[in-house]
Computed example of a mutant assay.
Amino acid sequence: MNIAFSPCPNDTFVFHAWAHGLVPGAPKLNVTYADIDITNHLAASGTGPEVLKISYAALPWVLSEYALLPCGGALGRGCGPLVLTRGGSAKEPDPALLSGRRVAVPSERSTAYLLFRLWAAQNVPGGVGEIVVMPFDEIMPAVRDGKIDAGLVIHEARFTYPSYGLALLQDLGNWWEGDTGTPIPLGAIIARRSLDLEAIAGWTRASVEYAWSHPEASRAYVLEHAQEMDPKVARQHIDLYVNEFTRDLGADGYKAIQSLLGRASAEGLIPEFDPSLLKF
């Protein structure tokens, strides 16, 4: 069976057991390691593998061909994207600063982008101006140098933005969790609807359970694909993104997904979709 997921520690941790033949009855996996932007496009192209990890923001485009699995993915708390601006020391950051301004984002088909647009619709009078898509590693320097008015950043930028002389305008994770009480839907595991979805979900869940029961078994595999990531950072990454929602989305997980996609659809950010397709 062909599968595509990222080389990030949470994905390699989750799928280590299945990829190494440690899940009884599961077919052998042919793994493609790819950034989530690539897997998003693979799924939407109609030529993607049987199973993929994609962003929840990309899900509405592929629901007719792929089903969302209730396990294996990533929903998180305390890990939201940040909206950054140049300098400033205002005690109360003012979202109105973004009215009509140029904002850089790393992707327009990501949960981070949906969160930003939903927050801006509620908090930025008249809305933002131009959205500029640029590589993630170029965003903070562009804001620092005044080429862009604000930037939407993710991942390790949470810890490094002060070194660029930037100021936090909004932590979108804090806003989302406070507004909805739900976690942030990040990465979804999907499989072609023509397959035995119950079986695939079972093999995926068994791989998750093996990973938790044998936490050191996947260590070498995880670090091999995490490249130069510090082992402690890799462990923190896993602990943050592999949680109870990875075992099973449950009522709270589905509520979070429906809230994000429902709001985004109402704002015209994603296509309309049939919510009943979120479960198979």
Results as ranks from 00 to 15, higher is better:
Thr85Leu: 09
His20Ile: 12
Lys232Gly: 05
Arg86Gly: 10
Ala220Leu: 09
Phe280Cys: 00
Ser207Cys: 03
Arg158Asp: 03
His225Leu: 14
Tyr254His: 11
Leu169Trp: 01
Trp18Thr: 09
Ile148His: 00
Leu82Met: 15
Phe280Trp: 13
Ala26Asp: 07
Val83Cys: 06
Pro135Trp: 05
Asp196Ala: 07
Leu22Ala: 05
Ile131Leu: 11
Trp175Gly: 00
Phe273Met: 08
Ala188Tyr: 02
Met229Asp: 12
Gly181Phe: 03
Ser276Arg: 15
Glu177Ile: 05
Asn174Phe: 08
Leu97Asn: 02
Asp239Ala: 15
Asp196Glu: 08
Lys147Met: 08
Gln170Ser: 12
Val83His: 05
Pro81Met: 04
Glu138Thr: 10
Pro81Leu: 09
Thr32Glu: 13
Leu197Tyr: 04
Ile190Gln: 07
Asp230Glu: 15
Glu216Trp: 01
Arg109Tyr: 00
Pro215Asp: 00
Pro93Gln: 07
Val51Ser: 04
Leu169Ile: 03
Thr180Gly: 06
Ser99Gly: 01
Pro27Ser: 10
Met229Tyr: 03
Cys8Gly: 07
Leu98Ser: 13
Arg144Phe: 00
Arg101Thr: 12
Ser276Ile: 10
Ile189Ser: 00
Asp248Trp: 10
Ile189Pro: 00
Lys91Phe: 06
Ser64Leu: 11
Ala256Ile: 12
Gly146Pro: 03
Tyr161Ser: 12
Leu68Asp: 01
Asp94Trp: 10
Ala121Ile: 07
Gly73Cys: 00
Lys53Asp: 05
Ala157Phe: 12
Ala67Met: 13
Lys53Gly: 11
Gly78Val: 01
Leu98Gln: 13
Cys79Lys: 12
Gly173Glu: 07
Arg77Met: 03
Ser107Ala: 08
Pro95Arg: 09
Val143Cys: 01
Ala167Tyr: 02
Ser259Tyr: 00
Leu114Thr: 11
Phe280Val: 13
Pro271Thr: 08
Asn30Ala: 15
Pro231Ile: 05
Gly25Ala: 12
Asn123Trp: 05
Thr39Phe: 04
Val143His: 01
Tyr210Ile: 09
Ile238Phe: 04
Phe245Cys: 01
Asn123Pro: 06
Val143Ala: 02
Leu168Arg: 06
Ala150Glu: 11
Phe136Met: 14
Leu118Cys: 02
Trp18Pro: 08
Thr85Asp: 00
Ala57Cys: 11
Ala4Cys: 10
Ala264Gln: 02
Ala167His: 09
Val143Asn: 01
Arg86Val: 04
Ala96Phe: 11
Gly78Ile: 03
Phe159Thr: 12
Gly126Tyr: 08
Ser55Phe: 11
Glu138Gly: 10
Arg192Lys: 15
Gly253Lys: 04
Asn174Glu: 15
Phe159Ala: 09
Gly250Lys: 06
Asn10Lys: 12
Arg144Gln: 15
Ala157Tyr: 14
Thr160Cys: 00
Gly127Thr: 10
Val23Pro: 05
Asp145Ser: 14
Leu166Tyr: 03
Val233Lys: 10
Glu108Ile: 15
Ala226Val: 06
Pro49Phe: 07
Gly25Asp: 12
Arg101Ile: 07
Ala191Trp: 05
Leu249Phe: 14
Leu114Gly: 01
Asp179Lys: 15
His16Arg: 12
Lys91Gly: 13
Lys147Gly: 11
Phe13Glu: 04
Asp248Glu: 13
Phe15Asn: 14
Glu108Leu: 11
Leu84Met: 13
Gly88His: 06
Gln122His: 12
Ala188Leu: 06
Glu224Asp: 13
Gly76Thr: 13
Ile200Trp: 07
Phe116Thr: 03
Asp171Leu: 08
